[in-house]
């Protein structure tokens, strides 16, 4: 019986038919997706913090409004994704509990500090840019609610990417101090950004299964290469130098070669030892704990209202 179901399931996937919440699915498929989508949702809301750090200090009113709206978009992405993940049988509160306890992960990139205004440009350009590379294929991922959430998310991410690039462009056209600020931001965000695609393919144990289930459509290394290839040209246009002395065009491969990623650092950050892991997690936990009385009151009030309405119905 189980085997038959699994065959039907794989058959649907092979035919590009979306899997929906009520459909039968292997437990491991459900778990893999739940982990991936909730991680993705956590990344959106933790990702609000490094950029949120600059809202009150944005250099002019236009930028302030754009940054606020961007960070708000990320909150919206978190909402869509938590809703998609909930269809797999875990509540948002349970997912948040896993985030707060440190059990659930989020994208490591958000464990780096935002030191200057140029970081708002670099994050939009590189981090949202890398996110798009990852996410565009996810619009066709096999699980229906996830794919549909990603369609909405991707539209906004590409807007964020252009906005970030435009911040960088303005800086590189500005004073020497502004140009230096832009280069410094690129120096600090480049390696964490290309690490965002995850470990190399030969060191990524779950990838093959995810590809077979069409949760993933491209490998980590394929996506990373694609990102490097498009970003090099963009950096040139800005007149900025990518901080990698091994970066050069490989005629034979038709791609850029690039230097080795410091995976020790990557795994240290994943393990909780990045420069801001503790602060990011604390900010989320504080927000949640300080908000507890608000959520409790909202629930109590809603219950009171409902009881009142029921009484009125009974009385009538």
């Amino acid at each position: 019986m189980e085997i038959k179901l699994e065959e039907i399931f794989q058959d649907k996937i092979d035919q590009e038919i979306k899997i929906e919440p009520r459909d039968w699915m292997p437990e491991k498929y459900r778990k893999t997706l739940l982990r991936q989508i909730s991680q993705h949702a956590h990344s959106e809301i933790v990702g609000m913090l490094p950029e949120g750090n600059w809202i009150t200090r944005a250099p002019n009113l236009r930028r302030k409004v754009a940054l606020l709206a961007k960070v708000q978009d990320e909150a919206g992405h978190g909402l869509y994704l938590y809703s998609a993940a909930e269809t797999l049988g875990m509540s948002r509160d349970e997912m948040l509990e896993e985030l707060h306890s440190g059990k659930a992960k989020y994208s490591s990139i958000f464990n780096y500090p935002t030191l200057t205004w140029a970081d708002m440009g670099a994050i939009g350009w590189l981090v949202d840019g890398a996110a798009i590379m990852n996410q565009v294929p996810l619009c066709r991922t096999s699980y229906g609610p996830y794919a549909r959430a990603m369609v909405r998310v991707c539209k906004e991410e590409s807007f964020h990417q252009r906005q970030g690039y435009e911040i960088m462009l303005t800086l590189t056209k500005g004073s020497e101090a502004q140009k230096a600020m832009a280069q410094d931001a690129l120096n600090r965000w480049w390696w964490p950004s290309i690490s965002m695609f995850g470990p190399n393919d030969d060191n990524s144990p779950n990838s093959a299964q995810s590809m077979k289930w069409k949760i993933k459509r491209f490998s980590n290394d394929e996506l990373r290469q694609k990102f490097v290839d498009v970003t090099v040209a963009q950096a040139e246009l800005l007149g900025l130098t990518i901080p990698d002395k091994d970066l050069k065009w490989n005629e034979e491969r038709g791609h850029y070669d690039f230097g080795a990623i410091n995976w020790d650092e990557f795994f240290q950050v994943v393990a909780g030892n990045g420069p801001c892991n503790k602060q990011r997690l604390k900010a989320r936990v504080d927000a949640w704990e300080n908000g507890a009385w608000v959520r409790e009151a909202a629930t109590a009030y809603a219950e009171k209202r409902e009881a009142k309405a029921n009484n009125q119905i009974e009385a009538a």
């Binding site: 609000m48 809202i55 606020l68 909150a75 908000g291």
Partner: peptide, 28 residues
């Protein structure tokens, strides 16, 4: 704007930011 990312629940974080955007828009 100091609340953005720190609200008691995601929906209200978004709602307060909407109001903030209106206020700063008007100020502009």
């Amino acid at each position: 704007a100091e609340w953005c990312g720190h609200g008691p629940v995601l929906e209200q974080d978004i709602a307060l930011t909407n109001i903030t955007l209106d206020l700063i828009g008007e100020a502009r």
